[in-house]
Amino acid sequence: MTSLQPNLSSTRQNKQAHSTRISLPWVITIGYLSLILLLPLAALITRSLTIGPVEFWQIATTPLARSTYEITFVTALAAGLINGIMGTLVAWILVRYQFPGRRIFDGVIDIPFAVPTSVAGLVLATIYNDSGWIGQLFAPFGIRIAFTRLGVFVAMLFISLPFIVRTVQPVLLELEPEIEQAAWSLGASEAQTFWRVILPPLIPAILTGMALGLSRAVGEYGSVVIVASSIPFRDLIAPVLVFQKLEQYDYDGATVIGTVLLLVSLILLLLINLLQQWSRRYAD
């Protein structure tokens, strides 16, 4: 009995020492999150609450605000849809094909992640304007890309592509070739194999990637502000409107549109989480 005594107290000491020391990372994590992230967002939400529901609704739904939502979301959705298809194709090619320069091709996909948005905007504006490398190919047909809504679309395509590729790629890698071979051995044609066997397990990943890209595109500022002319009702997007309102010291206006954008990102974040859960549905 007596021999147990010191043992017991030392374990208790140990435990205490342990728990006080482990709390430091907790303090840093929660403290830093609060200071850098939560406090500013709380300030934004509180500020928008002081505006009052009626006025909030009025500011949030002015014709200009509504047009910026439409331009932002519809363009972002269109870019998401195109990249949903093209990104899946690119991922497919990266996983299934061997060709010279494959690794470089793979690296190029990440460029939109690595390049500052203002640089992207600068180069897209230059290359897609009427006299630019690509823009001049379209100008004779009366198609202007830079400084129009098409420019916004191209910028959104640019920034959202890696999200889809990088979400679909790992899922494709895990999809064993045996799955296809099994379908063939049961008599399925190439098309039947694709639609019935390959595509269904990819769909959650494709949708997740599209939602991630959409979320990024909806909030995009840097590249669009340069590649678009930001003319109201033509190619002015919601984040640029927030910026303009701030420049005009219209804090209420900026707060309201900013809150709408924040809510949209929260909804998209929730959607992404749900999609990710859904994609784990059939996993072992």
Binding site: E176, E178, I179, Q181, A182, A183, W184, S185, G187, A188, S189, R196, V197, P200, P201, Y282, A283
Partner: peptide, 20 residues
């Protein structure tokens, strides 16, 4: 073509269609 051979093939790791 494998599709026309009328064979049954069973894989080591089952290769079941997980979504079905």
């Amino acid at each position: 073509d494998i599709r026309k051979r009328n064979i049954g093939f069973v894989f080591q790791h089952y290769a079941l269609f997980k979504h079905l």
